[in-house]
Computed example of a mutant assay.
Amino acid sequence: MQAERQQANLPLVRRLEAVSFRAWPAASVQYDGSWQVRLTGGHPSKRLNCVVALDPSDSRDIALRLERAARKFDAYGRPLVVRETPLTPKPLVEHLIAEGWTCFEEVVTQTVDLTALDIPDTLDHLPTQDVGRFVDASLALQGQDPALKPVLAEVINSIKPTVGMFLIEDPNAGPVASLLCVQDNDLAGILLFAVSDKHRRRGVGMEVLSSALRWARMRGARMAWLQVSTDNEAALSLYARLGFVEAYRYRYWSKDGSQ
């Protein structure tokens, strides 16, 4: 991560971090200096429940600030999670390592130039306006608890940029693929992308992703971004076929390896 930190385009990292916060807004956002404390009761997303530092030079009082953040997480019944990006101060990472924290997931942020993407400007699928229907499908495809529906709907409804909710459904089998596209001026974020196990490797993922990217491009987006776990080989292969390339990586840390 430290070598990647040196190579990362920090202005691009800052821009993509900011747009990702708008695309996936936490219910509670507090600042301790330049450290952002993100919490969302009732939803397990790590991006909605983490501490992320936004200035490489802001490394004062690390232990004290982590302790303050831990109290906030305790109030939500959650373990403290730190999200390390190329903007994270090096002394903070060194402190986590020295204190025995565990890095439990690495994620790559990728981008693609939509203006150069070779896809026709026709839409195979139009975004749905039915948040409840989309949320039901998304939770089912990701194998998540249906009880998360109210809080996930609340997260989606709180997104301020333009949202496109894409669904492919089968009359008999139910939801086949779902994807949330958030268009924020000239940037488009891909989130909640899921394909049913029975329909993978049949071109369905490419179909819904291409539709979302065309939709965003027709609305003025010039670059698309997404975040995917480095161990998700199927998704990485799909994105590579469309021309997505790595912008930077980030990692999650916790005291006891819990997520």
Rank of each mutant, 00 (worst) to 15 (best):
Y252F: 12
L39G: 05
S196R: 02
K90I: 05
G205P: 08
L242V: 10
H43C: 12
A140L: 14
L148P: 05
G132R: 00
P44L: 11
V155G: 01
N9M: 13
V13L: 08
L242T: 09
A235R: 11
A3L: 14
T111A: 14
E233W: 10
L179R: 08
W101H: 09
P11Q: 05
G257H: 11
Q6P: 02
A75I: 05
V176Q: 09
L213R: 03
P175Y: 14
V29G: 04
Y239E: 06
R60P: 02
A53W: 09
W24R: 02
R83G: 04
W35G: 04
D231G: 06
P79S: 11
Q2W: 14
Q36P: 01
D113F: 03
Y252R: 07
H199P: 11
V208K: 00
G205F: 05
Q2C: 10
A3F: 10
H95P: 01
M218D: 10
D121G: 13
Y239T: 04
N49I: 01
V108P: 06
L96M: 14
F73M: 13
V93Y: 03
A177F: 07
A247S: 13
D145S: 06
Y31R: 09
T40R: 13
A75D: 14
T115P: 05
V155Y: 06
P150I: 03
S34N: 06
V108Q: 13
P161H: 08
L126I: 06
V107S: 00
G42Y: 07
I159K: 02
L180V: 12
G174A: 07
